[in-house]
C-alpha cells in the first residue's frame, strides 16, 4: 500500500468512524486494567489507606519506611532473593551441561529425551504438590531451603533445557573445532567459547527462571514453615489473609516493593530480545 492509497483510505468517513470506535474501546479496556493498579499505587502512598479508592490527602513515603525493617519486609525479601538466585543459578548450570550433548551429538536418545522434556514442561506443577509434600515428609526435607531450591530447579529444568539447547544450536561448532585442534578439551571449549558466546541467551533463561521462582507462592507456602525462612509472597499472604486489622497502605507498599524487581527484569529482557513480540516467542517455548 503506497502513501496516496493510505490517504484515500483515511479520508473514508466510515473508516474514520471505525477508528474512533476502536480507540474508544481501547481506552475503556485501559481504564478497566488500570483501576486495580491505581489503588495499589495510591494506597502505598497513603498512610490512612483502606480498600476504597481515594485520592490521598497527602502523599507520603511513610508506608515504605515502616516496612523497611528486618522483621517486616527485609528478611522475607532476602529469603526470596536466596531462593530465586539459588534456583536460577542451579537451573542454568544443569541446563548448560545437559544442553551440550543434546545440541552437539546426533544420538537417537536425544530425540526421546527432548520429547520427554517438552512434555514435562507443559505438565501443571500444582497437580503434583500434594505428593511432593508427602515425599518431602518421607525424606525429612520439610522446611529445608536447599530442598526447595532443588525442587524449584527441577520444575524449571524442562523449559530451561529446551531454551538453552536452542540457543546453543546457534553457536557454530567450527569455533570449537579450531580450539580442539589446539588441544583444548570439550569441557574447556564449553566454558571458554560456547558459554561466553551465548551469554545473552543464557541471561534470558536466567531471568525467566528467576521471575518464576520469585513470584512463586504455593511451593514455599507448602514446603517451608519456619518464620525465618518465609519468602515475601508468603508474608504478603499472611498479612492480608489474617482477619482483623489489615494495614492496607503498608501491604500495598510491600507489594510494590516485591513486584519491582520482576517488573524491571521484564524490561531488561524485552530490550535484550528486541521488543515484546520476542517475549511471546520465548514464552511459547
Amino acid at each position: 500500500m503506497n502513501k496516496t492509497d493510505r490517504k484515500v483510505l483515511k479520508r473514508n468517513p466510515k473508516d474514520r468512524l471505525a477508528k474512533y470506535g476502536v480507540n474508544a474501546s481501547l481506552v475503556l479496556v485501559s481504564l478497566a486494567f488500570v483501576t486495580p493498579l491505581a489503588w495499589l499505587v495510591f494506597a502505598s502512598l497513603d498512610r490512612n489507606a483502606g480498600v476504597s479508592s481515594v485520592v490521598p490527602e497527602s502523599l507520603t513515603l511513610q508506608n515504605y519506611e515502616e516496612i523497611m525493617r528486618p522483621d517486616v519486609a527485609l528478611l522475607p525479601i532476602w529469603n526470596s532473593l536466596l531462593l530465586s538466585f539459588g534456583t536460577a543459578f542451579l537451573t542454568i548450570f544443569i541446563s548448560v551441561l545437559a544442553a551440550y550433548p543434546l545440541s552437539r551429538y546426533k544420538m537417537r536418545f536425544n530425540q526421546t529425551y527432548l520429547y520427554v522434556i517438552l512434555f514435562s514442561s507443559s505438565l501443571p506443577i500444582t497437580a503434583i504438590m500434594v505428593p511432593v509434600y508427602s515425599l518431602f515428609v518421607r525424606l525429612g526435607q520439610l522446611d529445608s531451603m536447599l530442598a526447595v531450591i532443588l525442587f524449584m530447579s527441577a520444575s524449571s529444568l524442562p523449559f530451561s533445557i529446551w531454551l538453552t539447547k536452542n540457543f546453543m544450536d546457534s553457536v557454530p561448532v567450527s569455533l570449537e573445532e579450531a580450539a580442539w585442534v589446539d588441544g583444548a578439551s570439550t569441557a574447556t571449549t564449553l566454558r571458554r567459547i560456547v558459554v561466553p558466546l551465548m551469554t545473552p541467551g543464557l541471561s534470558v533463561v536466567f531471568i525467566f527462571v528467576f521471575i518464576q521462582a520469585w513470584g512463586n507462592f504455593f511451593v514455599p507456602f507448602l514446603l517451608l514453615f519456619s518464620k525465618e525462612k518465609e519468602t515475601a509472597a508468603v508474608t504478603i499472604f499472611r498479612f492480608f489473609g489474617q482477619y482483623g486489622e489489615i494495614a492496607y497502605g503498608e501491604l500495598a507498599a510491600f507489594s510494590i516493593l516485591y513486584a519491582l524487581p520482576v517488573v524491571s527484569l521484564y524490561f531488561v529482557m524485552s530490550r535484550s530480545l528486541g521488543g515484546s513480540f520476542a517475549l511471546a516467542g520465548a514464552v511459547k517455548g
Binding site: 485501559s30 483502606g50 515484546s276
Partner: peptide, 28 residues
C-alpha cells in the same frame, strides 16, 4: 498494551491482593 502487560508481570500474590481489595464490599 503497557497496562495489559503490567498486570501480567506482577507476581500472582500481588494480583490476588489487588483483586481481593478491588472486589471487596467497600472496594473500587
Amino acid at each position: 498494551s503497557a497496562l495489559v502487560m503490567a498486570a501480567w508481570m506482577l507476581p500472582e500474590i500481588v494480583v490476588a491482593f489487588a483483586a481481593y481489595v478491588f472486589f471487596n464490599t467497600d472496594g473500587t
